[in-house]
Design a protein around this nucleic acid. Structure first.
Length: 407
DNA sequence: AAACGCGTCAACCGCATTCGA
DNA sequence: ATCGAATGCGGTTGACGCGTT
């Protein structure tokens, strides 16, 4: 099926127009106007098809065309009309004297689409994108029941303060999110460097999300379980011992999670995709290459990733150690189960992390690794919550040793 | 240094609509 | 009023320049 492009003529030139051709076409049109595009190339002595000439004229040579950058006003007009007209480029271009449909279409596809989605607006529907809507929705989902329960008198002063604090954190989270995408829009500091979301702000957004989650989970646990499970004084003493280990271990888990947020912020998982070595060496030689030494820990891909590897390993060892030293203690079986779960979850999480790295951070594995971090944090919270010291009144009522319904 | 990746933009292609004999 | 040619339109392509590996 040999399809003839647009005109039957074999000897038509295609591709970029030369200045000579432009001159021929422009001067011909200046004399004769644009009556019949089919005849124009013949009469003007051009080896082009009429369609090509028309395109060249309307999109480039026409004297009433504007050529420079789009102004801010023009940009607003495009966005506004696109939101009601959709991809009706010629209609939109009609609102902008001196611009063609092709110009507008190109500008939309190359610049405006990205700009809008960067501002959290979906370029197809012109509505705020789902992530933001979820954020706002969550605010309402929190506030409505809160005011209801408050009126009903279910909320104690202490709980009210806690919940208000969490709500404020949530609002702050929205602000950080806005501040974050804003950084992706600002002009890059130098001409060569892609504008992108600041690693600090992304890390802050992520860390804050984890913090809010932890706060919510802890608060919820405290409402559901005002007293820790404690059936004997022996178990209470055991819990106190475990707690000495569990607290620092939780701290390490928390720090590792934050370090993971910086890995995400710097896209640091897209380099050194080998394990256990980083490339050919154990420690890359440029880890202290940036000027203020401290900056390396937050912005240097190699250092950030190395940190996370070290911290993750430390976490694994720490949790293993906690399990080892508590395995023979006389403690509540729930605590034992929890410690076992943390060991298992840490192993899963480390494996996931290594897999994610080795396969160049596919979204699925990256998300799974993030979810794993959340799960591990949850387990640590559960553990610490379970290990709280019972209230004095409960302590008084406890027997020395638990009634052994199992050994 | 060569290959590669990426953004930009002019140009192309095929279909839809309008025009004019 | 009708039918083929001309024109309009929007999605898509690909050449080019530039920076990175």
């Amino acid at each position: 099926m040999g399809r003839i492009p647009c005109c039957e003529k074999e000897n038509v030139k295609r591709g970029q127009w030369t200045p000579e051709e432009d001159n021929k076409l422009a001067s011909y049109i200046a004399q004769h106007g644009t009556r019949n595009w089919r005849l124009i190339p013949k009469n003007a002595g051009l080896q082009r098809c009429g369609k090509s000439c028309r395109l060249r004229w309307t999109n480039y040579l026409r004297p009433d065309l504007k050529h420079g950058q789009f102004s801010e006003t023009e940009e607003h007009i495009i966005v506004k009309f696109h939101s009601v007209l959709g991809n009706r480029w010629s209609l939109i271009a009609a609102q902008l004297p001196g611009r063609t449909d092709n110009d507008v279409k190109n500008y939309w596809n190359t610049k405006l689409k990205k700009k809008l989605s960067g501002m959290g607006i979906d370029p197809v529907t012109h509505k705020p994108s789902s992530h933001r809507m979820w954020g706002r929705g969550l605010g309402i989902m929190f506030a409505l029941p809160f005011s209801y329960f408050l009126r009903k008198g279910y909320i104690t002063l202490r709980l009210g303060v806690q919940l208000s604090g969490l709500f404020a954190l949530g609002a702050g989270q929205g602000l950080i999110g806005w501040w974050m995408v804003k950084s992706g829009l600002e002009e890059p500091p130098s001409e060569y460097s892609q504008p992108r979301v600041s690693p600090y702000r992304l890390a802050a957004h992520l860390t804050s999300a984890f913090a809010i989650y932890c706060g919510l989970f802890w608060t919820a646990l405290s409402v559901v379980m005002p007293e820790p499970p404690a059936e004997s004084l022996a178990w209470v003493r055991g819990a106190a011992k475990v707690k000495k280990l569990a607290l620092p271990v939780s701290l390490i888990v928390g720090i590792t999670t934050i370090s993971g947020a910086f890995v995400a912020g710097n896209d640091a998982g897209r380099a050194f995709n080998t394990f256990p070595k980083m490339g050919d060496t154990w420690i890359p030689d440029n880890i202290f290459e940036m000027k203020p030494l401290l900056r390396n820990f937050f912005e240097n891909t190699a250092t950030v990733q190395l940190d996370h590897r070290l911290l993750a390993t430390t976490t694994l060892i720490a949790i293993g150690t906690m399990w080892w030293f508590t395995r023979k203690l006389d403690i509540h079986p729930a605590v034992k189960a929890l410690i076992g779960s943390t060991v298992g979850m840490t192993a899963v999480q480390v494996t996931l992390g290594v897999l994610t790295l080795l396969s160049y951070v596919p979204v699925s594995l990256g998300s799974a690794h993030q979810a794993g971090a959340l799960t591990l944090l949850t387990l640590m919270l559960l553990l610490n919550h379970t290990l709280r010291r019972p209230s004095p009144s409960l302590l008084k009522s406890l027997p020395q040793v638990a009634k052994s319904n199992f050994s």
